[in-house]
């Protein structure tokens, strides 16, 4: 089991991190490149950057959704994301691993804050899945990854909490370590291929809407071809 843990913390982890970082970078570069190409060929080349940045910042601010028709979901989602972003990066144990591997480090969260955020992420992750199952509209719109990712993330945080508090851990320490490392690697591996990619692509969302959907000559034909409705009335 030690060999598997070392594999997960060594070569597999490097592979997963590289795939996640380079994969997200690839999405960003291709999107920007594609937008540039579309704008170059579009008849209407007008483009207002200011409003796009404004809309992006507004879109990134979750507070405005707290009082909307899905206020509870927005609050749960925001709390889930706070723990999800802060704990993996600022947990002292993780920073020690970076120091050991690459010799780089940064300030860590106090242990009590990290614990609180971890529990918050686990609880909100479970509640988000329950909410998705509860509401018909959400349930019908959900894809397999929408069901799988929150429980996996909640499990990753729960196993991390057990490793940080061995006294509270009723399971075999090696097994929990292996599962924590394995699921962590898996989440990194699927990052560029699932909706987790929005962690890097969110800033581009408004930009895509502004630029990428400008019609180009022959676009209608392409749409029909893409939809598989050639020769049919639209």
């Amino acid at each position: 089991m030690d060999t598997l843990i070392e594999l997960g913390r060594g070569p597999l982890f490097r592979f997963a991190v590289a795939l996640a970082v380079l994969g997200l970078l690839r999405h960003a570069v291709l999107s920007l490149w594609g937008m540039r190409q579309v704008l170059r060929r579009a008849g209407d080349k007008r483009f207002a950057l200011g409003p796009v940045i404004q809309r992006t910042l507004v879109h990134l601010n979750p507070v405005r959704y707290f009082t909307g028709n899905r206020g509870v979901y927005s609050i749960l989602s925001t709390l889930f994301h706070v723990g999800l972003i802060l704990v993996p990066i600022l947990f002292a144990g993780h920073i020690r691993l970076w120091q050991r591997g690459l010799g780089i480090g940064w300030p860590a969260l106090p242990m009590s804050v990290a614990d609180a955020l971890t529990i918050l992420t686990v609880v909100t992750g479970v509640l988000l899945v329950v909410g998705r199952a509860w509401f018909v509209a959400s349930r019908e719109m959900s894809r397999p990854q929408d069901w799988l990712l929150p429980p996996l993330i909640a499990f990753e945080f729960l196993s991390g909490y057990l490793l940080a508090h061995p006294g509270s851990n009723p399971f075999d320490l090696q097994l929990v370590t292996l599962l924590h490392v394995g699921v962590g690697d898996l989440l990194l591996l699927v990052t560029p291929f699932t909706k987790i990619a929005h962690c890097a692509m969110l800033p581009f969302s408004q930009l895509v809407s502004e630029m990428a959907w400008k019609f180009v000559p022959g676009a209608g034909h392409d749409v029909v071809k893409t939809l598989g409705k050639e020769g049919q009335p639209i």
Binding site: S31, G34, V38, T194, K195, M201, V208, W213
Partner: peptide, 12 residues
């Protein structure tokens, strides 16, 4: 649909 990422240019 998985990533919600658009690669809008046909050549890309």
């Amino acid at each position: 649909p998985g990533t919600l990422v658009a690669h809008p240019d046909p050549y890309t």
